[in-house]
């Protein structure tokens, strides 16, 4: 179980991205975080694996306080938390294989990894991960030679390499068209059904209805809603997205 307790984040420039946010994520959930751009979704996800250090509050995962972990322990925690990004964040000039293998950096001998030497079983594992997302044949292409949807699948394969118990997905489909969006989210759904907890931020409400087991909504860094997707009625919608908002749908499935 992941417990987020009274987390606040104030950036050095004074921006308050998160204000006293608390909620729990049970193991096996597909939790979707919604909210406008700038509402603090990305900051919240990055606080969980401490790519960003929260200013206040605690994040406790299976009884371990992530926010208090010293560097070595933090790296051990991070390697169990896969992360998928809106811009994929692949090393564009490196091969797909290298990008996927890099997901394993927390496990392998660091000195060998610095020399770029990978054990055969890790390479095999990488090929399997690529196979799971359907692009094993692209292993030796340069990452930037792939289409957007393929790049995001490489991103998922990289997260899979971490043998994660939790996947953080920061707007994983915001750069993709609606059809690709579903295919990427179905991979995440599949992983979720295999027991990996998924915390995912999303824009489109119909995707939220389709995939989320539970929803947390942020507005200006404050949690304004927590519940199931079905509980988001017109009034709630207006509250989360503002009075002028119109619901935009991704193409129906």
């Amino acid at each position: 179980m992941l417990q987020i307790q009274n987390v606040s984040k104030t950036y050095p420039n004074g921006t308050q991205a998160l204000k006293n946010v608390s909620f729990d994520v049970k193991d096996g959930e597909f939790l979707v975080v919604i909210g406008l751009s700038g509402s603090g979704k990305s900051t919240l996800l990055r606080c969980i694996n401490r790519l960003i250090d929260p200013t206040e509050g605690k994040i406790i995962w299976d009884g371990v306080d992530i926010t208090a972990a010293p560097p070595a322990e933090l790296r051990n925690i991070r390697r169990k938390i896969g992360m998928v990004f809106q811009q994929f964040n692949l090393v564009k000039r490196s091969s797909v294989m290298t990008n996927v293998l890099s997901g394993r950096l927390g496990y392998v001998n660091p000195w060998m990894s610095l020399l770029g030497i990978w054990p055969a079983e890790e390479k095999q594992r990488a090929l399997e991960a690529l196979g799971r997302v359907g692009i094993a044949d692209k292993a030796h292409n340069r990452a930037d030679a792939l289409s957007g949807g393929q790049q995001q699948r490489v991103g998922i394969a990289r997260a899979l390499m971490q043998d994660p118990k939790l996947i953080l997905a920061d707007e994983p489909v915001a750069s993709l068209d609606p059809v690709l969006s579903h295919s990427i989210l179905q991979y995440l759904e599949q992983l979720n059904k295999e027991g990996i907890t998924v915390i995912c931020s999303l824009h489109f409400l119909d995707l939220v209805h389709r995939y989320a087991t539970r929803v947390v909504a942020l507005k200006d860094g404050v949690k304004v809603f927590e519940g199931t997707a079905q509980e988001i009625d017109r009034a709630k919608f207006k509250e989360i997205y503002g009075e002028e908002a119109q619901e935009v749908r991704a193409a129906s499935l």
Binding site: L51, R93, T98, S102, L105, G106, P110, S113, L114, R158
Partner: peptide, 26 residues
């Protein structure tokens, strides 16, 4: 691009590994 640096840090890599896998290739 700071993206790959963030991504490699998120895998639990140490500082040298981040430089080797996210900075040097760039």
């Amino acid at each position: 691009d700071p993206g790959p640096i963030e991504a490699i840090r998120a895998t639990g890599a140490n500082w040298l590994q981040v430089v080797r896998y996210a900075v040097i290739p760039q």
